[in-house]
Structures are given as structure tokens and as C-alpha cells.
């Protein structure tokens, strides 16, 4: 049995949302958003800065109540789940999850077991405590397990965060720009790892090239509305990229690899 088989098991349900609206004061952050992330596939959540990606992820994660609309995991409404049950179903790797607290890597990863424990039961009430070692192995951090958090590099921290969410043994994995501030090698390593898990995954990404390489499907947000949704190659069309990102770009067949890649000519000149 591999680390992966021990850590990731069970169902990979669809994650879907319908009619999601979120208002913040008089600003509409999400406007009638409909999303389908198919079970066991990686769905990229794309869009320019301020398009509502993080808010949408928080709503999908059940951390924030939308003003309208519902989120379903399989056919279960997320809002009907208890806090702990929700945390065993959906896990989120946040965008800026920093701390000055110097827990060890193992202690950080063990936080992911919290929703599996009885509130007053302590560590003894968790039958799956061995999961922590398995997920540490899975993300390649076993050798750093007893190191202090502040001594880790950015890439190691991000993998530790992934391990913590995997310790929650979720069915759905949400990633909020997980590769920000990582060098290219660490970006590829992180996304390959996340992809190999085979969970229903939604990843907010800035980098369109990474999105074309690692995502099966994409959802493109702009101004809180969905502008396009579907398989990555057929969704990221030149007109859509021009309209949403204001760039002249297209997905062309990769010269060497069996996939598409992004080719851009330049940004669109704004007419006053």
C-alpha cells in the first residue's frame, strides 16, 4: 500500500454550486455564480485580481454563507453539515497562511486531525492518528517532521499546509493560489503532488500556463461573474482571454508535449 492509498480513499464526489451571490456593502463580489467541479478532476479557478476567486473558494468551502445560492458536495448541501463534518469533507489551503508561532511540522500537520477528534477527547480519541505520518511521507516532509515551522522554506511550508489538509482526509480539496511566491520547480512539484491525489480539486491560479498544464477544466471569473467554464483547451479561447485579461493570447498545441500551452502577443491597448 502506498502513502497515497492510505491517505486518500473514499468517494470523489462532484462539487457544485448554483446561483451564488455575495454582496459586501453595496459591492457585488459574486453575482449568480454557477460552478461544477467534476469528481476526481482538477478544476482551475481563473480570473484577474479582484475577480472574486478567494471569496468563491471560501463560499465553496462552507466558511462563508452566500447571500443566495447553494453549494453541494455530491447531493449534500454544505450548509447542512456541522463544522466538524464539513472539515472532514472539504479542506482548504489558504493563500497567505502565515504564523509567528513555532510549532513543529508534525504538530502543524496534526492540526488536520482536529475535526476527527471528539472535542474533549484529546489525541487519544482519534483512531486515525497514524494518518499524520502517512501524509508527511506523501508530501515528502518526513525528514523535516520535527523541525520548527519558521525554519522551513516557502515550498516546504506550502507542502506542509497540503499535508495538514490531507490529514483532514477530505473528499474535496480547495487551493487558493497555492503556488504564489514559489520558484518554478516548487510550483511544478506542488501542483503535480496535488494532481496525483485524485481528489475533487478546485485551484485558484494566477498563472495561465500552469493552469493549462495541470487543470482538466477551468472556471473563468471576471467581476464576480462566470465568463467561461469547461475543459481547459476549449474554454480559454483568444476572445475570452482578450475580454477577461485584456491580452492578445491563445492556447496553441505544444511543440513537444501532448498538450496545449499559452502563447501571448501582448496586452490590449486600452482605448480611452
Amino acid at each position: 500500500m502506498t502513502h497515497r492509498d492510505r491517505c486518500v480513499h473514499g468517494a470523489t464526489p462532484d462539487l457544485s454550486a448554483e446561483g451564488l451571490s455575495v454582496r459586501l456593502g453595496d459591492r457585488t463580489v459574486l453575482d449568480d455564480v454557477q460552478v461544477l467541479a467534476k469528481g476526481g478532476r482538477v478544476t482551475g479557478l481563473l480570473g484577474p485580481n479582484g475577480s472574486g476567486k478567494t471569496t468563491l473558494l471560501h463560499v465553496l468551502a462552507g466558511l462563508r454563507r452566500p447571500d443566495r445560492g447553494t453549494v453541494l458536495v455530491g447531493d449534500v448541501a454544505v450548509r447542512t453539515l456541522s463544522h466538524r463534518r464539513r472539515a472532514r469533507t472539504i479542506a482548504l489551503v489558504e493563500q497567505h497562511a502565515a504564523t509567528t508561532t513555532d510549532l513543529t511540522v508534525r504538530q502543524v500537520v496534526a492540526l488536520g486531525r482536529l475535526p476527527h477528534r471528539r472535542m474533549l477527547g484529546g489525541p487519544g480519541s482519534d483512531p486515525g492518528a497514524g494518518v499524520v505520518d502517512d501524509v508527511l511521507g506523501l508530501v515528502g516532509l518526513t525528514h523535516l517532521a520535527d523541525r520548527g515551522w519558521t525554519t522551513l522554506s516557502g515550498g516546504e511550508r506550502q507542502r506542509a499546509h497540503l499535508a495538514r489538509t490531507l490529514a483532514q482526509q477530505p473528499e474535496v480539496l480547495l487551493l487558493d493560489e497555492p503556488t504564489n511566491h514559489l520558484d518554478l520547480g516548487q510550483q511544478l512539484r506542488f501542483l503535480s503532488l496535488a494532481r496525483e491525489l485524485g481528489l475533487t480539486t478546485v485551484a485558484a491560479l494566477h498563472d495561465l500556463e500552469l493552469a493549462t498544464a495541470f487543470c482538466d477544466d477551468v472556471v473563468v471569473l471576471d467581476g464576480g461573474r462566470v465568463r467561461g467554464q469547461g475543459p481547459v483547451d476549449t474554454t480559454l479561447t483568444a476572445p475570452l482571454l482578450r475580454e477577461v485579461y485584456r491580452v492578445e493570447a491563445s492556447l496553441d498545441p505544444h511543440p513537444r508535449l501532448d498538450r496545449h500551452h499559452l502563447v501571448w502577443d501582448g496586452h490590449v491597448e486600452e482605448t480611452a
Binding site: S82, R84, R85, A87, E94, A97, Q168
Partner: peptide, 9 residues
């Protein structure tokens, strides 16, 4: 932080 606490249930 609080988002992470919330996501841990």
C-alpha cells in the same frame, strides 16, 4: 488565523 481555524472545523 481564523480562516484556517474555520476550515479545521
Amino acid at each position: 488565523g481564523e480562516v484556517s481555524a474555520l476550515s479545521l472545523g
